[in-house]
Design a binder for these strands. Sequence first.
DNA 1: ACTTTTTATTACCGGCGGGTAATATACGTA
DNA 2: TACGTATATTACCCGCCGGTAATAAAAAGT
Lengths: 236, 236
Amino acid sequence: MDTRTPASEHSPWLPFESRRRARDEKREAVLRAAVQLFLERGYHRATLNEVADRLNITKPALYNYFRSKEDILFECWSIGQERVEDQIAGIEAAGENGLATLRRLVRTYAATMASDFGASLVRFNVADLSEANQKATFAGKRRIDRAFRDAITQGIADKSIRPCDVKLTAFAILGALNWIGHWYKPGGELSPDQIADDFAIRLTADIAKSSAKPSANTKSKTKPSKPKAARAIRDI
Amino acid sequence: MDTRTPASEHSPWLPFESRRRARDEKREAVLRAAVQLFLERGYHRATLNEVADRLNITKPALYNYFRSKEDILFECWSIGQERVEDQIAGIEAAGENGLATLRRLVRTYAATMASDFGASLVRFNVADLSEANQKATFAGKRRIDRAFRDAITQGIADKSIRPCDVKLTAFAILGALNWIGHWYKPGGELSPDQIADDFAIRLTADIAKSSAKPSANTKSKTKPSKPKAARAIRDI
DNA sequence: ACTTTTTATTACCGGCGGGTAATATACGTA
DNA sequence: TACGTATATTACCCGCCGGTAATAAAAAGT
């Protein structure tokens, strides 16, 4: 009763897979166009007609892939969030000391903030989401916050970070990082990686135990994690 | 031909003044209600009917004081901006060294970010303003940015701050400060002044020359400037 | 070639909300 | 009391935009 045709020569699975992939690619194209437009003009001023125009389709076609405009907004946020959480998971899995972990967190988070989906995490207004989706974003923010606080706490415990107010320290660091999403523009003098490397040191300089100075890998080495290959979307 | 009545006994000038003041107070009441609503629900989701409702009036009454919804939005922003610029002017006039100036800037700016009109500086979307008003906000942001950069530059010159990348340092500090406008909620554990005092040290710890340690005024002393008594509006 | 499913288009609806016109009311002034 | 002005209300308009048929075109499956 195995009706599958041999792998070569039009197997039904390949067309099926390729169709699903084509569909996903279109979904992603919509999200890329949408996130850019939302960032440029703001969620409310951006219309679905404009999103569709940029893709050379018409508005109703979008509804083949998304239920509503808010659905699109939330999906954009989800992509950025998932990316960050994947990075966090990879960093935490490395099991380095608190300071090294914190610096990796800062570096990757900074780089993400310089991308469209990353910036959407801080530039979209939570009030534009449904109740349920708002709760999801709050939970997401808490997870990010916790990752930073955990790294700091652990650093204090393992003596790589000098004792400090964990909560306020995390707020200060995350504030500086999130702000990147507001000021970074692609054509500037500094590349995302340069900003990320700089901030990794700068934002941890005051709390780092002077003994643990370097971690000075100045070149490459800037993509430490990518555990799940799930999402294929890339900004820009 | 001087038709003015003597100053005492129903002079026309006093009623005129009192009427103008009553009008200004109503204008300000509108702005206070508006800024709160805009922060709560977002500019686009907040309707003028809701603003009016909170003041126990009806929507068209608002048009006695403002030309348009966007006009209200811009005025809210202006109040926050003016407040910050007044503070900056006062601090710069004090003529202290770079580090002390920077710390004062951080302290007052942090406290302002914990107020409604202060938060509006970073939580309103520039794209919701007219072209002309957008330019005004950009100019305002530049002036704030310049104040922080100037303080850092001067601090390097007068040796109170160790040499560093001025631009990125300012970005990091202003990012941490601006983020206060996103996370601060009135009922929290920390008061605006506590946050301000903490950040004044925290955000300058890594660039301060170790010699210039203290400036340790832990109590009071937290309203160093208020040169122009022009605006009477107070948040909360 | 025929059917079915997916994907897209054209045409349209409906309501929300900013803004206005006409008008009423309160109030300072004489 | 009578007038003028400032301020408020009621009632209404209208343009924009998210969302929905109804239907056509394209692709996949048989």
